[in-house]
Design a protein around this nucleic acid. Structure first.
Length: 477
DNA sequence: ATGTTC
C-alpha cells in the first residue's frame, strides 16, 4: 500500500483522506507502517468501498493482517445498523462461512511427544481427511444434514464426537441461533454429505504445537497454558456447503441490491438490507453454514483425540476455545453512548470479547476471550485475550492470522512444495500434505510476519498476547 | 476458500 495515500493517526492507526460525502463513514486501518506498506493498494480501495454501503456504523475497518479479498478485504470488520437501512453481504462474510480455529490443550509436554513425532504425524495425516473434495468416513442422509444445519456442534456431540464440556468453549456454545436449513439449497446439502469431519485445502491445517513463550502469566494460567505444553490447533470451515451458499446468495443479493436501488461501488459487494426478505434469507442460510463449521471442527477434535489416545495412551485433550473468522453476527455494542443491536461482519477477523462479557465461559470471564492468531505453515501462532479497549475500538475484534503478503499464483512461481517441506523437516517441523502445489502456495514467505501482526494487534489495543506457539507437526489440505 | 478452469 502506498503510504502516501493514507493518513497516520498514531503508531498503529491510519485513515484515508476522503472528499465530503464520498463515503458514509470513515475508514480505519490498524497496523504498523511496515505492515500497511506490505498490503496491496486493493485493501485500501476495498475498505473505502465498504465505507460507502448503507447503514455502516462508526467506520470501515481493517485488522493488521488485512489482504485483498472478494469485495470486502480479508481482515475486514464492518458493523451495520438494521434500523438505519444497514445491509448484510455474502462477500462481507466470505465464501468459507465460519472458517475458524479449534484449539485443544493437552496435558503433554514436548518431551513426551518428541520420541513419537513421526508416528504422530503419520497417524494424524491418515486419520484426518485433507484436500480438495476429500470425504470422510461419515456419510449423512439428507435429513441428517438438516439436523447438522440446525444444531451445529450439538449434533456432533449427540453422535459421539466429543464431550459436553467442549461446548462451553465454543462460540455460541456450539449452536448458532437463527439457522434456517430450508434456506440452504439441495445442492449445497448434497456437497456436504461426505465432507463432515474433513479439513479441506488452501490455508486449512491441523497443527501440533508447543507453547514456546508466555507473554502474560496470569491469563495463561486462566487459559490452562504453560511453557513446554503441547496444543493442537485445527483450522477449517464449512467446506463445500459454505462455498455453495456463498456462490448462490451472491446472485440473490445482487438482484436484491438492484431491485432496491442500492448503489454498489463494486459488484462483488452484492448485499441486501438486513430488514429485507433476501437479507433475512441469507442470514438464515449463513447461520446454518456456521453450524456446519462448528460441527466439522467438533468432529475433527474427536478424530484428533482418537489418534492421541492410540499414539500417546492416557493423554488428555481439552478444548481451549473455538473461534470463527468469517461471520456476520447480531451483537449489542455501545456507539456514541447508546446501546445498539448491530450486525457485525468479520471477514478474516476474530471476535475478541473483553473481560466480563456475559457470553464468556466462567473460567475466562475475568481475563477475556481467547483469540487465536494462526501463523503460516511452520512459523508459529499466538494465543491472545480480548480487551475492554477492543470494544471501544473495533466492536471487539482482532486479527485472525498472519495474512497473505502475496497471491497464490506469485507463491507458486517462487517456491516448490517438496523443497519447503524438506527445509522445515530440517528444522524439526513435520509437514504432511495432500498437495505439494498447495504447500508451495502456502509458503511461509508468502505470508506476513506473524510476530509483527500479533505485536500490532496488541499495541493497537485489539487483543493482548498471552502465549506464542511453535509448530511441531502440520497436516495441510 | 472451492467437486481449484461449472
Amino acid at each position: 500500500m502506498d503510504l502516501g495515500r493514507v493518513q497516520q493517526l498514531d503508531e498503529y492507526r491510519w485513515t484515508v483522506p476522503l472528499a465530503p460525502g464520498e463515503t458514509r463513514a470513515p475508514v480505519l486501518l490498524y497496523g504498523s507502517a511496515p505492515l500497511l506498506a506490505s498490503m496491496d493498494d486493493k485493501v485500501l480501495e476495498q475498505a473505502v468501498n465498504v465505507a460507502k454501503l448503507p447503514g455502516l456504523v462508526k467506520a470501515s475497518m481493517t485488522m493488521p493482517d488485512a489482504h485483498w479479498g472478494y469485495g470486502f478485504p480479508i481482515g475486514g470488520v464492518a458493523a451495520f445498523d438494521p434500523a438505519a437501512g444497514g445491509i448484510v453481504s455474502a462477500g462481507g462474510v466470505g465464501f468459507d462461512i465460519s472458517c475458524g480455529v479449534r484449539c485443544l490443550r493437552s496435558d503433554l509436554s514436548l518431551t513426551d511427544i518428541a520420541p513419537h513425532l513421526e508416528l504422530l504425524a503419520n497417524a494424524l495425516f491418515h486419520a484426518i481427511p485433507a484436500g480438495v473434495g476429500e470425504e470422510g468416513r461419515l456419510k449423512l442422509a439428507p435429513a441428517q444434514i438438516d439436523e447438522v444445519l440446525a444444531d451445529g456442534a450439538h449434533w456432533a456431540l449427540r453422535h459421539g464426537y466429543g464431550v459436553p464440556e467442549d461446548l462451553d468453549y465454543v462460540e455460541e456454545n456450539g449452536r448458532m441461533a437463527g439457522a434456517v436449513p430450508a434456506n440452504v439449497s439441495e445442492l449445497a446439502k448434497k456437497r456436504q454429505r461426505g465432507e463432515m469431519g474433513t479439513l479441506g485445502s488452501g490455508n486449512h491445517y491441523l497443527e501440533v504445537q508447543v507453547v514456546d513463550r508466555i507473554h502474560d502469566a496470569e491469563t495463561a494460567a486462566a487459559f490452562g497454558l504453560r511453557e513446554g505444553q503441547i496444543l493442537v490447533s485445527i483450522h477449517c470451515g464449512s467446506r463445500g456447503l459454505g462455498h455453495q451458499i456463498g456462490t448462490e446468495y451472491l446472485v440473490t443479493l445482487a438482484k436484491a441490491a438492484s431491485r432496491l436501488g442500492i448503489a454498489l461501488p463494486d459488484r462483488e459487494l452484492a448485499c441486501a438490507p438486513i430488514r429485507s426478505p433476501e437479507g433475512q434469507q441469507y442470514l438464515g442460510a449463513m447461520n446454518a453454514g456456521i453450524n456446519v463449521a462448528l460441527a466439522n471442527r467438533q468432529i475433527l477434535a474427536h478424530l484428533t483425540r482418537e489418534v492421541f489416545a492410540r499414539v500417546l495412551p492416557g493423554s488428555r485433550l481439552e478444548t481451549l476455545f473455538d473461534v470463527s473468522h468469517n461471520t456476520c453476527k447480531p451483537e449489542r455494542h455501545r456507539v456514541d453512548g447508546r446501546d445498539a443491536l448491530l450486525y457485525v461482519h468479520r471477514k478474516g477477523a476474530t471476535r475478541a470479547f473483553g473481560p466480563g462479557h456475559p457470553s464468556l465461559p466462567e473460567r475466562y470471564r475475568a481475563v477475556g476471550q481467547p483469540v487465536i492468531i494462526g501463523g503460516s505453515m511452520g512459523t508459529g501462532s499466538y494465543v491472545l485475550a480480548g480487551t475492554a479497549e477492543s470494544e471501544q475500538e473495533a466492536f471487539s475484534s482482532a486479527s485472525h492470522g498472519a495474512g497473505r503478503a502475496m497471491s497464490r499464483h506469485q507463491a507458486l512461481k517462487q517456491w516448490r512444495g517438496r523443497e519447503l517441506i524438506d527445509e522445515l523437516a530440517g528444522r524439526g517441523i513435520l509437514i504432511r500434505t495432500a498437495s505439494l502445489r498447495g504447500a508451495a502456495e502456502e509458503a511461509p514467505g508468502a505470508y506476513k510476519d506473524v510476530d509483527l501482526v500479533a505485536e500490532a494487534t496488541e499495541r493497537a489495543g485489539l487483543a493482548r498476547r498471552v502465549a506464542f506457539l511453535r509448530p511441531k507437526v502440520c497436516v495441510k489440505g
